[in-house]
């Protein structure tokens, strides 16, 4: 199993797109904290920003593009055509001839993805929160370690969500567009939450309740409950993806 995970780590880290996800995801949150610093300072001084308990942690959201790209590309790279000469040829053929046990393969892929994203999340959280302390230390309390751990878990689960959806769609473009638009331009989940309180249990919204304390949520959900709900979403989608992957002809 160790050699399988090593092979999957190599495979993922050998893709330029994966590096786009790694670099963007790691740098964006600290960059936003830095760029927003003058505005944040003015807001605190003017008294318009009184609840500073989420400062730093809230900024992590922008970096989620990293885990999303990584989660998608780890699967979609298997399905992209390897050459114009052979449109039906894909890396998946090489993957499955090397590792025919599909469930073991998925286990190795999942492990590789979790290792990379958790490391990325830890580095990003450390950088973002340290920067927040340096810039706004006197106003922003240091977040409890449990909240930071929850933020890292949120990143990891988001990557797994993207991964599971791509396993089902077998194509990276749809899930990536959907996830990125939903997390940046127009949040469909957020809009839905204006219609029904149930939308608060959608995976991307409920997940943030693990570590964000802000009060602009329609439903009160305890952090542990939030974590369990998001994990359940990921587990169900992963199970569907795994069953399809196991059954399908390549």
């Amino acid at each position: 199993m160790v050699s399988l995970v090593r092979a999957e780590l190599r495979k993922l880290l050998g893709l330029p797109t994966a590096w786009v996800g790694l670099v963007l995801g790691t740098l964006m949150a600290p960059a936003v904290v830095l760029l927003n610093a003058p505005y944040t300072r003015r807001a605190i001084t003017a008294g318009t920003l009184t609840d500073t308990s989420d400062l730093g942690l809230r900024d992590l959201g922008i970096g989620l593009i990293g885990p999303m790209v990584l989660g998608v590309v780890v699967v979609s790279s298997e399905y992209t055509s390897t050459s114009q000469n052979a449109p039906g040829a894909r890396q998946l053929t090489a993957t499955l001839t090397a590792v025919p046990d599909r469930l073991r393969l998925l286990l190795a892929k999942t492990t590789a993805l979790v290792l990379i994203v958790a490391a990325q999340a830890a580095v990003t959280a450390a950088a973002t929160l340290t920067l927040t302390q340096v810039l706004h230390g006197e106003h922003a309390p240091v977040p409890a370690p449990a909240r930071v751990a929850a933020a890292i878990l949120y990143w990891t689960l988001t990557a797994l969500l993207a991964y599971a959806i791509t396993l089902i769609t077998r194509n990276g473009i749809v899930p990536l567009a959907l996830l990125i638009i939903n997390s940046t331009v127009v949040s469909v989940s957020f809009l839905l939450s204006k219609v029904t309180d149930l939308a608060a249990y959608l995976p991307d919204i409920v997940g943030t309740r693990m570590f964000i304390r802000g009060t602009d949520f329609p439903v009160e959900i305890a952090p542990v409950t939030a974590g369990l709900v998001m994990t359940a979403w990921v587990a169900v989608l992963l199970a569907v993806g795994a069953v399809l992957f196991h059954r399908r002809d390549v």
Binding site: R10, G14, T82, N85, A89, R90, Q91, T93
Partner: peptide, 15 residues
Amino acid sequence: LDGSGAHRARTARAH
């Protein structure tokens, strides 16, 4: 089988 099985972005050695 059809094609090389190598992702386009990978070098031959990396594959």
